[in-house]
């Protein structure tokens, strides 16, 4: 599926740069050692604003939940309707979620709870974007 391109900004440049190197990094608070996603300028848990860094994670996860999108607001994705839209829980911290179209998984036949691994797919402007595929077996 052809996703919209990405124009990295100051906050997310490390996330997108890592994706182009086929690495998955997640923001981590150095002070409370807690991952957070989506990225933010401040730690959500440190009252006085913890110091944030980017931490490479394993790229392994589990399918937590999914829906099937039949009426998508994003024009570039509309020709692919209907499509799966799943939420992945990271093995490194199941509280951290990422979205996935689950390439290769038939529509509405999603194995909730199955193990997945990160892959990287090009978006409309060539920026690589994290995606997830089911690990066979």
């Amino acid at each position: 599926m052809a996703k919209q391109g990405v124009e990295p900004d100051e906050l997310t440049q490390p996330f997108w740069d890592a994706a182009n190197e086929k690495r998955l990094v997640i923001q981590n608070c150095v002070d409370c050692d807690r991952l957070q996603h989506p990225p933010s300028n401040t730690c959500r848990d440190c009252d006085d604003g913890g110091q944030l860094a980017w931490k490479q994670v394993s790229g392994r996860g589990t399918i937590y939940n999914y829906g099937v999108v039949h009426d998508c607001p994003v024009r570039l994705l509309q020709e692919d309707q209907p499509f799966n839209l799943a939420v992945i829980m990271l093995d490194d911290d199941p509280g951290i979620q990422m979205y996935s179209h689950l390439p290769g998984v038939p529509v509405d036949d999603v194995p909730v709870g199955a193990a997945v691994e990160v892959i990287f797919e090009p978006s409309a402007n060539g920026q690589l974007v994290p995606e997830w595929r089911v690990i066979d077996g």
């Binding site: 919209q4 990405v6 997310t12 829906g67 998508c72 607001p73 570039l76």
Partner: peptide, 29 residues
């Protein structure tokens, strides 16, 4: 949503194209 590219921060959550009711649909599922 009609464009060909998104700024990096919204792209982290919006590239996948979930409609407004998507999150609620997941909770219901």
């Amino acid at each position: 949503n009609a464009g060909n590219a998104l700024p990096g921060t919204p792209a982290v959550t919006q590239l996948w194209g979930g409609p407004a009711s998507y999150s609620t649909a997941l909770q219901f599922a």
